[in-house]
Simulated assay, not measured.
Amino acid sequence: MTTDPFPVRCHVVSGKGGTGKTTVAAALALSLAADGRHVLLVETEGRQGIAQLFDTPPLPYEERRVAVARGGGEVKALAIDVEEALLEYLEMFYNLKRAGRALRKMGAIDFATTIAPGLRDVLLTGKIKEAVTRRKDGRRVYDAVVVDAPPTGRITRFLGVTGEMAGLARSGPIKTQSDGVMAVLKSPQTAVHLVTLLEDMPVQETADAIADLTAAGLPVGSVIVNMATEPVLPEASLEAAAAGRLTGADLAPALAAAHLPDGAALADALASEAVEHAQRWAAQDALRSQVTALGRPTVELPLLTGPIDLSCLYELAERLEEHLASEEAA
């Protein structure tokens, strides 16, 4: 039995666009920071979505505290700037910080990352690996790093491009750095969590991503079903409505007893709404079975009404914390 309650240190969160992966990543960071732990939340796509969720000014290329978790833990956030990451890389491995800044003024860095988009992903994953393995005074700086990663359609390429770079370089700092990044990303230190909705396209993309990640030797973590709804009808009524056996005539007596006007028209309208709800729930339940069949640990997060604010993140974090604890117990 490991003494580390959360042996995975690099939590990569991906999902089809619109599934709420940034919200889930933020909530996961809060859950991992409970009980005094230190967590870094990394944004890779330059949208400043993390800053909006935590209601803070746009994040610069530096690590800033954005929240305090239960038990005194803290979440810091970092929006990776590709140009700054390249300058940092040139200084670290080639002592070329001054030359790198000259290249930046000339626009050469922007040009390079545009014509070679894989370079951007190499820099991003390199910075993530640095944060995961960083130590100070002999101790890890962060107990966990959570990455708000690109969508499922791009996640395998994003995580694997550094391995391709390692294959191109036979030796030297690029080879060493690339091998080091892939050693972390393909190790038990990393888990790629996939966010989905109970809808056809997100579930299919999740299944495809699991297959692609597995084939690439990248470790898949949990499937997180976001914005899950609860049925508003009892089970027996759900089955009857989904089968089309609920009509306005079934509801009319109760509406009449309540002395509601236009009872027949209202009964027909309510029955139609109930049938639609039940059929939608039945379709979601079938997709839930497909998610279970993927064979990965699964957790459902509820659909929250209104805009997502910090209190919502704490609510979702509590659900995820329970899931993490159950996974550790298993």
Rank of each mutant, 00 (worst) to 15 (best):
L310Q: 12
R154Y: 12
V141Y: 02
L238Y: 07
M182H: 08
L260N: 03
G36P: 09
L303Q: 14
V82K: 04
D268T: 14
V146W: 06
D110F: 03
A99H: 15
A236E: 11
A256E: 15
L59T: 01
S326R: 15
P231A: 05
A236Q: 08
T2C: 06
L303C: 06
L194Q: 02
D55N: 14
L90A: 12
E84P: 00
T133D: 13
P150D: 01
L40C: 12
D212Q: 15
R319V: 15
T133S: 14
T23A: 13
A67G: 09
V68L: 12
I115R: 12
H193S: 07
L316C: 04
E62Y: 09
E239D: 07
K105P: 00
R70D: 09
G263D: 03
D212Y: 11
A241T: 00
R319F: 13
Q189E: 11
H193C: 06
D285H: 05
V299P: 03
E130R: 11
K16T: 04
R139A: 12
L294N: 02
T247C: 02
E43H: 04
T229S: 00
S14Y: 07
Q284F: 02
E91H: 14
A282L: 04
K97R: 14
S272L: 13
L59R: 02
G221I: 04
A282C: 03
A211R: 14
E322A: 14
R139S: 13
K186G: 07
T206C: 09
T133H: 05
T44E: 10
G36F: 00
L287K: 06
E83T: 01
L251H: 08
D179W: 06
H277D: 00
A67H: 11
C10P: 02
P117D: 09
A144E: 04
A183H: 07
E199P: 03
Y314I: 02
E63A: 15
G306D: 08
P188S: 04
L294R: 01
S237H: 08
K136M: 15
D208M: 12
K136T: 09
I115G: 05
A108F: 14
G153L: 13
L324M: 07
V223F: 08
L304G: 10
E88R: 15
T22M: 08
D208Y: 15
L310R: 14
A240D: 06
P151M: 00
A274P: 01
I50E: 05
E130V: 01
T305I: 03
P253T: 01
A183E: 10
I210H: 07
M1A: 12
V24M: 06
E91Q: 15
N226V: 09
E205C: 11
R280P: 01
G248K: 06
A257N: 11
L301C: 08
H323P: 01
G221A: 05
A241D: 04
D262I: 03
A325N: 15
V147F: 04
A102C: 10
A257T: 06
V68T: 10
R37D: 12
P150T: 14
H38I: 02
L90K: 06
Y314M: 03
Y314C: 03
E84N: 02
L159Y: 11
A254S: 02
G100F: 10
